[in-house]
Design a protein around this nucleic acid. Sequence first.
DNA 1: ATAGCCATGTAACCAGTTACATGATTGA
DNA 2: TCAATCATGTAACTGGTTACATGGCTAT
Lengths: 200, 200
Amino acid sequence: MSLKHAILVLLSDQPGSGYDLVQRFRSGIGHFWNATHQQVYQELKKLNADKQVQLEKAQEERPDRKVYRVTAVGRRALKAWLAEPIEPLRIRDALLVKVYGGQFGDRDSLVAELDRHRILHQRHLEEYLQLEAYYFEQDEATRRRHGLPYLTLRRGIVYEKDNIEWLDEVRALIEADRLPAAPVLANGTAGRKPARVSKP
Amino acid sequence: MSLKHAILVLLSDQPGSGYDLVQRFRSGIGHFWNATHQQVYQELKKLNADKQVQLEKAQEERPDRKVYRVTAVGRRALKAWLAEPIEPLRIRDALLVKVYGGQFGDRDSLVAELDRHRILHQRHLEEYLQLEAYYFEQDEATRRRHGLPYLTLRRGIVYEKDNIEWLDEVRALIEADRLPAAPVLANGTAGRKPARVSKP
DNA sequence: ATAGCCATGTAACCAGTTACATGATTGA
DNA sequence: TCAATCATGTAACTGGTTACATGGCTAT
C-alpha cells in the first residue's frame, strides 16, 4: 500500500490538512497516484492513531482545518518503506482486454474506442508538456529542488507518448485490413491448445 | 471490472475449466490482466449464476474438471461491454511514489531499487521479444488469426522498453549528481504553496 | 515414500470507489 | 440568493490478495 506513504511524503514536504493533501494530489503526485478525499481522511486517521502524524493545531478560526505534520515515527516509517524493494508494475489495462478479444465484438466500435483513447492520451501528454515547460522556466535552484518530482513527470510524458505510439500501430494494422473484421478464431483448434500467442 | 470479460473472451475462444483459464492467464492475457485461481473460480460461479456461461459436462474420469462454455447471453454481454467506452488507464506506480519522495530516504537504496527494476523490466522485455519471435515463425494464416492478441504483446514490448528508457534517464540524472543526495526541499517555502511541479 | 502437478474451493482481510451527508464562507 | 469553494466525515459495496484447506494422480 502506497497511499499511506504518498501522504507521508507530501506531509514531510510540508504539513497540511486532509483538504490540502487532496489538492496536492490533484496537481502533482496525483498524476500517478490518486486518492479521493474519503480515502485521505481515513488514512490520516490511521496514521494519527499509529503516531506517524500528529495534529499540529485544531484551528479556531472558521475554516475547520485539521493540520497534520509527520512525527519522528512517521519519518522512520517512510524511510524504511523507501528502502524496501517493491514489485515492478505490470500493465493492467482493460483496453488490452478489449483489443485481445476484439474479434468477439464490433470492429467499428473497437476502432472508435481506440481513437477516443488516442485523443485522451494526447490531451494528457499536452498537459504534461506544459508542466514540463513551466518547470524549465524556473531558476536552477528551484529545478534542482524539484528534480525528483520532475522525473516522475518525465515518466508521465514517456507513458503518454508510448500509448499514442502503440495506438497508432494498432490503428495502422487494423485499418490496413491486414486483420480480420469478423470472428475467425476457430473453436475447433486441435486438442487443448488454446488459441494464443505463446511459447512452443 | 474486466476479469469477468477477460474470462468471457478466453472461454469464447475455447471452452475450458477454471484450471485451464488460470493456465491461459499465465501464458497469454495474463501479461496485462492477471488473476489468481481463487478469483477465477469465484467469477465462474457468478457467470454461471448469471447464465453467461454454462457447465459443459461434469467429467466422470478422475481429474475433476468442470468445463464451462459461453452461452448466447454471455456472448451478448461481452459484445455489449466491448462496445462500451472505458476510461484510459493512468499510471499508478508505487515506484513513482518512491522517486517523488526519494529525498526523504536513502539515496543509495533508491539507486539500488531503480537498478533492480531495470533488470526485471529487461527480463520481461526479453521474454516478450521471444514470444514475438515465435509469433513471426508462424505461417501467415496463424499470424492473421492471432493478430489482435499479438498487438497486446506489442503493448507489453513498448511498455517494457519505455520503463527501461525512463529508468536510464533517472539513473543518468541522479548519477550525474545534478540532483541532491540529501533532503533539501525546504519546509519554509512561502505561504501554502506546496513544493511540487505545477502550473503557475 | 514423496514431491509435484491437477483440480477445486472457503474465509478473512485490505484498498479503492461510490453514495450519502453536513455545514460554513465567499463572491457575483 | 445562489453557486462555488472550503472542510470534514460515515457507510456500503466491489475487486483483489493472502491464508487456509482438501484430495487424487503421476513419476521418481
